[in-house]
């Protein structure tokens, strides 16, 4: 099947690291998926080890029928993003994945000092819902078959976060 990231990383994406970094890693993830939760610290380690060599992009792929809080969590991260705290919320959700529910998301929003009324309003917004759905559809188009799925420089990576870390380590040597 096709293994190309569609569409390519663009201004609608959340990007961590230097835009000019030579290695681009895109994760399609679900905030409630335990495999994504396990991948989270591995990505952190990767970012620490490879520093400005990599940039990391997260796209939403909520499996809402299996994970009841996946969609609302994706919306919460996007809503926090509107207030300039996307990655803070992204990290906070994964760090507290075991307790994920609606209440946790509001609590995290409060901890991050978000304007709570605005946050709540944005959770309901059509535009954010469309953003999450567009991410999901791009994942379908790109051949995502489960979460997490990774793309390295636009090509689907056949393996999990640990495999990706090993691959980067090997190619750096």
């Amino acid at each position: 099947m096709s293994s190309q990231l569609k569409p390519a990383v663009n201004e609608r994406d959340h990007l961590q690291g230097a835009a000019s970094a030579p290695i681009e890693i895109v994760e399609y993830g679900d905030f409630q998926c335990p495999h994504c939760g396990a991948a989270y610290p591995v990505i952190k380690k990767m970012q620490e080890v490879f520093g400005d060599q990599i940039k990391f992009i997260f796209r939403n792929f909520p499996l809402s029928e299996s994970h009841q809080y996946a969609k609302i969590a994706a919306l919460a991260a996007e809503a926090a993003g509107l207030q300039g705290k996307y990655w803070e919320m992204h990290d906070a959700i994964y760090e507290n994945q075991g307790q994920l529910n609606d209440g946790l998301l509001y609590e995290l929003a409060q901890n991050l000092g978000l304007d709570e009324q605005q946050f709540e309003q944005d959770l309901q917004s059509t535009a954010l819902n469309e953003k999450v759905e567009a991410d999901f559809e791009s994942g379908m188009r790109s051949g995502v078959s489960g979460t997490p799925s990774f793309f390295v420089n636009g090509q689907k990576f056949d393996g999990g976060a640990e495999d990706l870390y090993d691959m980067l380590k090997d190619s750096a040597e």
């Binding site: 998926c33 335990p34 499996l63 029928e65 299996s66 999901f136 559809e137 379908m140 078959s145």
Partner: peptide, 14 residues
């Protein structure tokens, strides 16, 4: 957990 049928189940509206 993210098997093929579960994946398609998420995609019905698309």
């Amino acid at each position: 957990c993210s098997d093929q049928m579960a994946l398609y189940n998420e995609m019905l509206k698309y």
